[in-house]
Lab assay of single mutants.
Amino acid sequence: MEVRTIKVFTTVDNINLHTQVVDMSMTYGQQFGPTYLDGADVTKIKPHNSHEGKTFYVLPNDDTLRVEAFEYYHTTDPSFLGRYMSALNHTKKWKYPQVNGLTSIKWADNNCYLATALLTLQQIELKFNPPALQDAYYRARAGEAANFCALILAYCNKTVGELGDVRETMSYLFQHANLDSCKRVLNVVCKTCGQQQTTLKGVEAVMYMGTLSYEQFKKGVQIPCTCGKQATKYLVQQESPFVMMSAPPAQYELKHGTFTCASEYTGNYQCGHYKHITSKETLYCIDGALLTKSSEYKGPITDVFYKENSYTTTIK
């Protein structure tokens, strides 16, 4: 009895394709271990004539594949690729409408935090270190965002349907971005203890939790000093293409032309909904596939993004 075979390709990165001759009487799992086709788990399936010449994702289970996976995804987590594939199996079914010149995501599976993050990423200057993220990001900007969303979920250790947080998501993504040249110098002034300067680099240099107003941050924000008295913390120097200011959701007025974009969060910790506000020729609110415009805006804002380049204080 002759062994019926077909020729397929296996890959971990969709760049390096490895030619395989597979036995049609055995499952993919018996031949390769966990195997995925377009995100779908085909591990328990036997090869079919229609699979001839198709590319299958496999887990990096030998040295060659491990090197290829690390170079593309910059992670050695053995569960990463499987999590990416199972997320992709959902995100490829989502709709990605162009809204006001940006790629958004039609609401499904509690994905409003991903839509808000995706919209924000198209408006701030950011370059990702893992080629996987950078490639998928370019495709997302062009309207094909399924891979990018699935990668975000995998890097953030999230599953489809789980509630997510924009600030946490951005923080994970910033860790995989090139923020080497970003720098922030802060000064804390206390009447009792004097003053202390701190220099922050990388992710810490672009994120701040405690106030939404970048102007206020430049002037000074009140913080408790270690001595128990009130101290003032203010920005001395900022070198970065953008800054992200966050605070627990509270009524906040966004003035046209003073910011790049913002995240609105309605609801409580267990259950809520994100919308995205962007400042173009007027203010726009993007909620999944829905767009509304207004000249002014007041609502429960939790993150505001500002364009920056270089700032030095005039406070002496």
Rank of each mutant, 00 (worst) to 15 (best):
Y172E: 05
V236K: 06
Q122M: 05
N100P: 03
Y137R: 04
D62Q: 08
T159W: 10
I277E: 05
M245W: 02
T120S: 11
C112E: 04
G228C: 01
E125K: 11
L81E: 07
F174P: 00
A117G: 05
T198F: 13
N16M: 08
Y252V: 13
Y73K: 04
A247N: 07
V160H: 01
K92W: 05
K219T: 12
Y208K: 00
D38M: 10
L283V: 11
L291H: 15
V58C: 11
G228Y: 01
V21E: 13
T314F: 15
A146S: 13
S86L: 12
F56M: 12
S263D: 06
N178M: 08
T75A: 13
L17C: 14
K44S: 13
N129P: 04
V185K: 06
L17T: 09
S171C: 15
M244Q: 02
G33D: 04
T64K: 14
Q175P: 11
A132F: 04
P34S: 13
C227V: 01
K307D: 11
N100V: 06
P34Y: 15
H74N: 09
Y172S: 12
T159I: 08
K219V: 10
P78S: 08
T76M: 14
I124F: 06
F174I: 02
N309K: 12
I45E: 14
N100S: 13
N110Q: 01
I223S: 12
L126Q: 01
N178H: 08
E296R: 11
D41P: 14
I152K: 04
Y306P: 00
A247L: 06
W94A: 00
Y306N: 02
A154S: 07
Y36S: 05
G202K: 02
Y84L: 06
D63S: 13
K158P: 01
P34M: 14
S310L: 14
E162H: 01
G29R: 05
G299W: 00
V21N: 10
V236D: 04
H256P: 10
H176G: 01
I315Y: 15
L290C: 12
C190V: 01
I15D: 05
L126T: 05
Y252C: 09
P78L: 08
F80L: 06
A87P: 06
Y57M: 14
V188T: 14
T19L: 11
F148R: 02
S181P: 07
Y172D: 09
Y172T: 12
M209P: 01
D287F: 00
Q122I: 04
K183H: 07
G33M: 01
T198A: 10
N157G: 09
T278M: 09
G164A: 05
F70W: 09
C190W: 02
S294R: 08
T116Q: 07
I301M: 05
N111F: 05
G101Y: 04
D13A: 06
G82H: 15
E68R: 07
T55F: 06
I301S: 00
V189Y: 11
Y137Q: 08
F217I: 15
T169Y: 04
T211Q: 07
N49S: 13
S25T: 14
Y311F: 15
V3Y: 13
T232R: 09
E308D: 09
K46V: 09
L290G: 12
G39F: 09
G257H: 06
P34F: 12
Y28I: 06
L102M: 13
T27R: 10
T159F: 07
Y28Q: 03
A117Y: 03
H51I: 05
P130R: 03
G143L: 03
C285I: 15
K293A: 13
T211G: 08
V185C: 05
N49L: 13
C225D: 01
T64I: 14
F174V: 03
L179Q: 02
F32H: 15
F174A: 03
G33L: 05
T211F: 07
K7E: 13
V160Q: 02
Q230G: 07
F80P: 02
T120E: 03
I277P: 01
S25K: 08
Y96C: 04
T43E: 12
I277N: 00
G202L: 00
K229D: 14
G299E: 03
C271I: 10
L88C: 04
Y36E: 01
K293E: 15
P60F: 04
S213A: 05
L179P: 04
V12K: 08
E168L: 10
T43N: 09
G164N: 02
I223V: 14
L173H: 02
G288W: 01
G194T: 03
S310A: 13
K93H: 12
K183Q: 15
A136W: 07
K201M: 11
T314N: 15
G39A: 14
F80W: 05
C271V: 10
P300Q: 10
G210T: 02
K92Q: 11
I105P: 02
A146F: 05
K218M: 05
E215C: 06
Y208I: 09
A108Q: 09
T11W: 06
N268P: 09
V58F: 06
G29A: 07
S104T: 09
L163Y: 14
T159E: 10
G101V: 02
A140W: 01
S279C: 09
V58Q: 07
V189M: 11
T103V: 12
C285F: 09
C261G: 02
L283H: 00
F148C: 04
G220A: 06
K293V: 11
S310M: 15
T312Q: 10
M245L: 11
S79K: 15
L186T: 14
G101Q: 06
G164T: 05
W94F: 03
Y297R: 02
Q31N: 13
P300C: 15
T27C: 14
Q237N: 10
T76D: 12
P300K: 09
T292R: 09
T199R: 08
K233F: 08
R139G: 10
N100G: 15
A154T: 09
R184D: 00
L291P: 05
T260P: 00
A205W: 02
D303P: 00
V58G: 02
L118M: 08
A250K: 10
G220H: 03
H276S: 05
D135R: 09
A108W: 00
T35S: 12
Q134N: 10
M24K: 10
D303M: 04
M24D: 15
Y113M: 05
K275N: 05
E52W: 11
Q251G: 08
T43F: 11
A177Y: 01
K93F: 10
M26A: 14
C227M: 01
L179T: 03
Q175C: 08
P97L: 14
T19A: 11
Q216N: 10
W107E: 03
L126R: 04
Y208H: 15
G39E: 12
T211V: 11
R167E: 02
L163T: 15
S50G: 12
E308K: 07
M209N: 13
V21Q: 15
S310P: 10
C190D: 00
